[in-house]
Design a protein around this nucleic acid. Sequence first.
RNA 1: GGAGGCGUGGCAGAGUGGUCGAAUGCGCCAGUUUCGAAAACUGGUAUGUGGGAAACCGCAUCGGAGGUUCGAAUCCUCCCGCCUCCGCCA
Length: 422
Amino acid sequence: MLDIHFIRENADIVKEGAAKKHIEVDLDRLIKVDDERKLLRQELDAKKAEQNRRSNEIQILKDVEREKVIEQMQHLKSGMAESEEKLKTVMVEWQQLMLTVPNIPDMSVPDGESDADNMEVKKWGEPTAFGFTSKGHIELMLALDMADFERGAKVAGFRGYFLKGDGVLLTNAIWQLALKFFTAKGFTPMIVPSLVRREALIGTGFLPQSEDDLYKVQDELYLAGTGEVATMGYHMDEVLTKEELPKKYLAFSPCFRREIGAHGKDVKGLIRVHEFYKFEQVILCEASHEGSVKYHEELTRNSEEFIELLNIPYHTVVNCGGDLGLGQVKKYDIELWVPGEQTYREIGSASYFHDFQTRRLNIRYKDAEGKLQYAHSLNNTAIPIPRILVSIIENYQQADGTIKVPDALVPYVGKSVIGGAQ
RNA sequence: GGAGGCGUGGCAGAGUGGUCGAAUGCGCCAGUUUCGAAAACUGGUAUGUGGGAAACCGCAUCGGAGGUUCGAAUCCUCCCGCCUCCGCCA
């Protein structure tokens, strides 16, 4: 959410930003509704002031005088009820409109409509070359009994999967390495809820826009698509001290995505699934653009380093305006080489939000002057399971169908090759 | 799932219909004192919002949303959360 004062004073900038993101927003309507809101508010405040004044008089008055004033007050009251009703209607629309106003993308964000327009900013390693005919991760994993997709579909439906045997060992090894790596970077590990209330999803900017992407369960609870939701909700309605910032969390959680708009995409394998597990980096920092930019680069670099540790070719792209979410100011995607598809596939997204999320979540801190400020927030994937398995398995496959274990993972897997003679 | 209790400022804790935005204590900030500090004393210490150049003034906020009343922290309803006991359970 943006500050209404900011929106009013910078309507043109906000409109340009929305256009760059290809998000429709009716700012003129919002400003008109806001005018009405202010006017009604002032009217009502004046009436309440009158009411307060007269109520105090009533205490002192006696008998007939008192009865007279009370009668007058009853009149005033019915007039107020009308104003309140009007204001309530206006506020409903005001709230709805406010939630649709996107954050403004950074100047450095390129124009474009979709992920096809994202621009490469960094490339690391060369696409893996094989001296043999390489296989896809599905074939490899099935042959090594690391996963089961047929039974996955039988039990869990479309996009269901089981991880098995060395698939689980490999997963566990990645988690161990991630914990060690990211905690060494100063992140506090947390296991966070996936089952969350609506407030946390509105606060992070997933609702009301993306209702269709979320699983909703009974009792107005939702299954979050990322640990970011609960981790940001953690400090909801809190006032932090300047000294405890930045807060750096490494959140682990199961993640659930309906992938409603993705029917027919990535129908097989572990690239796109409804249920997965993710370590997520989340940062809350002081309210400065320079600080946000600094931490954004840091978050991105952390993930790049982790991938370099696994020694998988990747590139980093800066997302174009049309590929940015409502609250995001700027976003980098890190994409790993997938030999089976001869392309890079996203394994993580690093974004910063300025105070867009913290305004909605009411997360503040006291600055050096003792003034309350909304903190800034950022997040980036640390590592997603099982998607990361795709790139590891495909890039590390060997001619005999076995899979070499990346050096960094060997201590945690307990062997250097998956498959073949043990 | 059943029964009961509770939710007040940074914290502790009064307040059960009328100058209550809220006693008191602690904490915090400033001053006096001191070579300096501690102690003591004095004063100040919520947030949001509207108006105003400012001083200042209005409105709102005692978990949240409604309601009763001229007037609600206080009474009523629903919701959320916490605690205790019983039941169930990994």
